[in-house]
Amino acid sequence: MTPQDITKLIVRVSMKDRGAFDLLYRQTSAKLFGVCLRVLNDRAEAEEALQEVFVKVWTKADRFAVSELSPISWLVAIARNHAIDRVRARRQPVAHIDAALDVADPAPGPEALAVAGSENERIYNCLDELEQDRAAAVRGAYLKGESYAELAERHSVPLNTMRTWLRRSLMKLKECLER
């Protein structure tokens, strides 16, 4: 499926076309489930989240017309933001069991980088301009939906320090992206 095909499916879904919805699910649910699973780190919860994500896609498909995202990125953004909302709403932040083993993990593997085309290199080049631990914090937060509180604990710095760090890194990133 090309991005154009997925765009067509989303537009049809916005017109409440169930056939298009079924096809869109078949084409994209594995990627979106991967997103939910990574952020929530819990299979049952990720299944519930995926269900809610596709309900959102059905009801909000018309919003795609005002987004500049590619169709698959738009769907990933819905799934990611929903999973992060869910993880924040948990009564107690459950420490990721693999947190200790996982510190260096957030960088995409070689296969993911190979998939990434030239358009994608810019964000990676800009991340490379940041100090290593800050770039890792941005990546970890993005992929796993880590909160300021979790990042502060992992990097052993006060919450406000973490926030200042990350904000500065994000402004640097923006400067670089717009160069």
Partner: peptide
């Protein structure tokens, strides 16, 4: 979202169960 979207390439697809 547009700026950071390329990082999402690192999410590996996982087939959800058929009940979903």
């Amino acid at each position: 979202e547009v700026h950071l979207a390329p990082m999402a390439a690192a999410y590996q697809p996982v087939e959800p169960p058929e009940t979903v």
